[in-house]
């Protein structure tokens, strides 16, 4: 199975968004979105504030199900299963697709318990297995060396950047197929931002990444594909280099060059 973009770029799709509409009550926030997310690549969602990037991202793990009045129309296919179908339990979706939030949100528990939680939820309590997985995830999030001697310390004593990497470790520990990032560096200083970006570039060989970012440079620096959204619609999707070099929409061009946003 392969997908071909307009100018002959070929990739293997991981997830397919088909004719997706989303409503907060009576307010339509997403309008007929069609998007194919390439496997083991970084796909960036960009667009001006309020255009629906977060809303689209949170469709992928059915986060909207937590609040009454929200409604999906259309499909998101993950290996031919429509994860938006009412008969699919959101828990099943969230066990396959992890999420890292805009503001670091570690649990007020120990570093170890934060990372182990995803496994504990699944009923895994064997200490030896947890130990190994926690270490692996912390290594994967480039945090192991900083915290290996204080795994039982409170996660809230870590710096903001460390907390966000902890949240990444927490998302990785369950071997997700896709990791969703919602502006993961917007609450961090430049140095912490750089370390998170580096981490995300390292991750893309292992997992499919979908990231919302408001920073053009961030999208340009390490994403492989970029989708541009505007007022709830997806205007353009292409390889990042192509989109930044010759955007096919006037809107995209204006946004990328900083004339809107």
């Amino acid at each position: 199975m392969a997908e071909e973009l307009s100018d002959g770029v070929i990739f293997k799709p991981k997830a397919e968004v088909k004719n997706l509409n989303f409503y907060y009550g009576s307010v339509q926030a997403l309008k007929n979105i069609n998007l194919t997310v390439p496997e083991k690549q970084v796909t960036a969602l960009i667009g001006p504030s309020g255009c629906g990037k977060t809303t689209l991202l949170r469709c992928f793990n059915r986060m909207h199900d937590l609040y009454p009045g929200n409604r999906y129309e259309g499909q998101i296919l993950l290996e031919r299963i429509n994860i938006l179908a009412p008969k699919v339990d959101p828990i099943e979706v969230r066990m396959r697709i992890s999420m890292v939030f805009q503001k670091p949100n570690p649990f007020p528990k120990s570093i170890y318990e934060n990372v182990a939680y995803g496994l504990r939820v699944r009923g895994e309590n064997k200490r030896s297995l947890l130990d190994g997985k926690v270490e692996e995830a912390l290594r994967g999030a480039a945090l192991w060396n900083e915290v290996k001697d204080r795994l039982n310390d409170l996660a809230l004593n870590l710096s903001g950047g460390q907390q966000q990497r902890l949240c990444i470790a927490r998302a990785l520990v369950v071997d997700p197929e896709i990791v969703l990032f919602d502006e993961p560096t917007s609450a961090l200083d430049p140095i912490a931002t750089a370390s998170i970006e580096e981490l995300m570039s390292d991750l893309k060989d292992k997992v499919t990444i979908l990231i919302v970012t408001h920073s053009m440079q961030q999208a340009a620096r390490f994403s492989d594909y970029t989708a541009f959204m505007y007022l709830g619609e997806l205007l353009e999707f292409n390889k990042t280099e192509t989109m930044f070099a010759k955007p096919s929409h006037k809107m995209t061009e204006d946004y990328i060059s900083g004339r809107t946003g």
């Binding site: 793990n61 986060m63 937590l66 959101p90 828990i91 969230r94 066990m95 992890s98 999420m99 939030f101 503001k103 949100n105 570690p106 649990f107 007020p108 939680y117 995803g118 939820v121 699944r122 949240c167 927490r170 998302a171 369950v174």
Partner: peptide, 18 residues
């Protein structure tokens, strides 16, 4: 309890009771 902690737990696949 801030909502972002609830969302963090749900996002890892926790059931409501968990």
């Amino acid at each position: 309890i801030p909502n972002n902690l609830r969302e963090a737990a749900y996002a890892l696949g926790a059931s409501k009771w968990q």
